[in-house]
Write a protein that binds this DNA or RNA. Sequence first.
DNA 1: TTTATATTTCGATATTTCTAGAAATATCGT
DNA 2: ACGATATTTCTAGAAATATCGAAATATAAA
Lengths: 105, 105
Amino acid sequence: MNEEYAAKCLAELGSPTRLAVFRLLVRAGHVGMVVGDLQRRLRIPASTLSHHIARLAWAGLVEQRRRGRSLHCFARTDVMDGLVTYLTAECCAGFDDEKTDQPAA
Amino acid sequence: MNEEYAAKCLAELGSPTRLAVFRLLVRAGHVGMVVGDLQRRLRIPASTLSHHIARLAWAGLVEQRRRGRSLHCFARTDVMDGLVTYLTAECCAGFDDEKTDQPAA
DNA sequence: TTTATATTTCGATATTTCTAGAAATATCGT
DNA sequence: ACGATATTTCTAGAAATATCGAAATATAAA
């Protein structure tokens, strides 16, 4: 995970619809969900949903595998874990003055 | 932190420029950085930078306080912590089959 | 009170993104 | 081959966003 890729993932997750899709897929675990499931769940037109899933897949956050007529979608939780690790290391506290202050000066 | 606000924060952090601003501010801790510091560091026009800082502030991720002619900027690491906690709980593994599987079935 | 500094607001343009209907594609069952 | 199902691609208008120069604002210093 680097800054550029982190920004890409954040941007793709930063849409209410896409975040909802991703959450549903995370909860579905490695069983995944087919696009139609997601559509019935989210009540949005197929083309719109397809667009959002494509963006998540483009960012590497979602994987799709065709099985018969259906496309199974899975959340790449390993990528998400990498993102969270990156954010924790680079964007959370830890550069605070407790660290940089001279102790007992 | 709820889904809607999480999406907002993610969207605002999902710009390379804004993520860079936020990282710099995190590293600056509670000392913060003035806008001019950020500008010299990132080499982008003042108006563009101002726009991005305003968005981060609008999302609550950055706080600004005027001191004299300068505007000091601070990263709201507490908000960031909340976001990371949310992502960990809602978007990372944990709904996986290790959990839902029958143990020793 | 004039001048310098720091930053924002305005305005204009270029680009991206969102949304969703219509058409196309892929796969299956018959 | 045909019809049904599942999903994507195409297309386009509307809305949002990015960029940056110029002008405006706020504060301090001389």
